[in-house]
Amino acid sequence: MDDQKIRHLQATAQQLRRNVLEMIGIGKAGHWGGSSSLAETMAVLYFHAMRVDAREPCNPARDRLVLSKGHAVLIQYAALCELGYFPREELKRVKSLDGLLQGHPDLTIPGIEAVTGSLGQGLSIGVGMALALRLEKRPAHVFVIMGDGEQSEGQLWEAAMAASNFEVDNLTAFIDLNRIQATGHTDEVFRIPDLVQKWNSFGWEVLNARGHDVTSIAENIDKARSIKGKPALIILETIKGKGVSFAENTATYHNGVFDDARFAQAMHEIALATDMREEVA
């Protein structure tokens, strides 16, 4: 990736954060924390790594992204909107009674590939897609993003076993390791030690990426796609709520509400970070 591409993806990630903030707005609850921690990953996937085209959202040859941690769907809407999957006005109507954008991923929304939100199910769905694509000898790749809190769901480990049993290598999974879940720090809510060893012992190739470094994410995706005969997992080291100082590393903004002042400050911080990047450029 050249410098220009890197700067473009960094700016895109900030734009996605801005879109998420606009969707959440003032006085309404929204999943800022786990959306924001995925901004760079979404930017790299949708604007660099994945073969997708908003003009052909059902093209059977497309790559697929299943957001198993469906509560972070705002960051996916942010990306899909930038790509032109639906009009920008829909962002303002998210979760409204007659709006297009549901509170969790829904198949009625162009670009969304699976219904998720009841945690632990996305990897299984992704494995099904990968097996179907392999049967049809299509080169498409399936990406699945899981949360770290989600790792306590048993079904996900069934899917992990199935993926290695069937030697699925057209699928790459991610864990958004932001270390905070709905009610607190993951180590305090429910300890899941030795995550790398667990996935390794389930037959997966485990890679580590700096989750807010677009180059690190892109390189690891390339590496994951080149692994044959087994599935690959990329653990993303991230910061929950990244980009808004008071909302970082706290469960308060897992599904939090911004008041007027906090919202203004959040927008200001995102704008500042974007400006600074542009100055450096």
Partner: peptide, 10 residues
Amino acid sequence: STAAGMALAG
């Protein structure tokens, strides 16, 4: 869920 993924892929 795997069956669902297969169905969504045709």
